[in-house]
Amino acid sequence: MTRTFLTRLLAVSSLISAVAIVGWVHQSPDEAGRVALKSNHPTTSPDDEILLGRSLVLNHDCAGCHGGVSPASKQWLAGMTRPDQEFLIGPCALKLDAKPCWRTRPRNLTPDNATGLGRFTERQIFNALRYGLRPEDTPDVDITSGTPGVGNFPQHPHYLAPPMPWPGWRYMSDRELQAIAAYLKRAVKPVSNKVPESEGPPDFWASAYTVDLIGPYPPPAFPAANERVP
């Protein structure tokens, strides 16, 4: 991963929105560090859920990889449009010709039916963020476990390609992940942009996303072995 990307990743890991939304009343964070957004426009009041989702999409910098500079830009979340937006995953990231090498590509997150998320449900998008499961390869069902074959978790999971940071973002609350899915499906304009399929190993990254490598979900109770009560 590039240095810029890592810096960006660290910068947006905070759950508190730092973005001032024009026309909205700023509220103080609640105990859990979340900001409740309330409209002060009496006639049109979009869903709180949509605005929460939008806020999370902004402060997690989805657009940093998935395209667009702001919600006002044409290619907002419409996926890779230039070759430099591709990622090289594997030893080739350090040494160009090293193998194995996979090129992964940020997909179109707009609700376009043919090229975006239009044909997937909010539940499938939720499962992608919570469990890393590719919506096109995973049935539209409630998943209640992270163990293959249990609670509708697929026997042979197909994961989103790195460097999609879902292993960290899965720790957002259910409400937050649902809000992101709702925003993407309902409040973003569909844009037609066919991003070629990412490359990857035949196990669809299953060996890269083991518990040993990415940690357990849910996280261990506080205080865990490397933590202490202040």
Binding site: R119, Q124, E136, D137, P139
Partner: peptide, 10 residues
Amino acid sequence: VLSQGMINGH
């Protein structure tokens, strides 16, 4: 809708 191994998500 045909996705990978599924029809209409099921």
